[in-house]
Design a protein around this nucleic acid. Structure first.
Length: 225
DNA sequence: CGCTCGATATTCT
DNA sequence: GAATATCGAGCGA
């Protein structure tokens, strides 16, 4: 088959230019894109990104890069489109992709918090030890476990084919454009007012529901205060 | 349902 | 020693 038709994945690969923009804008635009993990020759896992967060540099006290480069965060200061994986709370991995305007910001990355599983759901269920689709990859720790992402993937270039971890433009299977709303970031205490978390408010696969986009719960019988 | 707590790497005080 | 970009088990209302 010479025609490059349906499943030519590398043609949909997001290029470095996509990540060479202000980090919050990249985080916003990643909603609706497809995170792809290739475990080996045959097992391809994929899901639609429905929740992200932007992390900056010296101007963002919640960011790992706030106090300058360290052994852990050095990817945030390097080329864009590279996987930044870290281990936290003694139990969980989280995956980011480095993103920033290279000539304007010294560091930056987008934390990928939740996906809607699309391909390889059975493998994800095995890796997670649950069959509940809402608990498969909704939340940064769950997502990395579902996709088999560990510190071994730290530093991978996500803009080239064959690295085993990349992000693609959505195809017909993943549906059309997504709504995007912004909210404060989750699990931080500093800079908690910055609206640098981005979600598809119509997705059931976000890691947490917030008042910012909660469905109308009118005070029918609970008129307090 | 909501709250507390353990896991324990990495960084900072 | 304390805090953290988390998750899930345990416990009580």
């Amino acid at each position: 088959m010479a025609s490059r038709s349906s499943s030519s994945s590398s043609s949909r690969l997001l290029p470095p230019e996509f990540y060479s923009r202000p980090t919050p804008q990249v985080a916003h635009d990643l909603i609706g894109k497809v995170l792809v993990r290739v475990l080996d020759k045959k097992r391809r896992l994929a899901g639609v990104i429905v929740e992200t967060e932007a992390y900056g540099h010296a101007d963002d006290p919640a960011s790992h890069a706030h106090r300058g480069p360290t052994a852990r965060n050095r990817v945030m200061f390097g080329p864009v489109g590279v996987a930044y994986v870290y281990f936290t709370y003694g139990s969980h991995h989280c995956v980011n992709v480095s993103a920033r305007s290279p000539d304007r910001a010294p560091a930056g990355a987008v934390l990928i918090r939740s996906i809607e599983p699309v391909e390889g759901v059975g493998v994800m269920q095995n890796l997670r030890g649950t069959g509940n689709p809402l608990l498969l990859a909704s939340g940064p720790g769950r997502l990395t476990q579902a996709m088999g992402i560990t510190l071994l993937q730290n530093g991978l270039d996500m803009t080239v084919p064959g690295s085993g971890l990349c992000i693609e433009e959505a195809g017909d299977l993943e549906g059309g454009r997504r709504q995007v709303v912004s909210t404060p970031r989750i699990g931080i205490t500093k800079a908690a007012d910055l609206p640098w978390r981005f979600v598809d408010p119509s997705s059931r696969f976000v890691s947490r529901r917030l008042p910012a986009f909660a469905p109308s719960i009118p005070e029918q019988h609970s008129r307090s205060s």
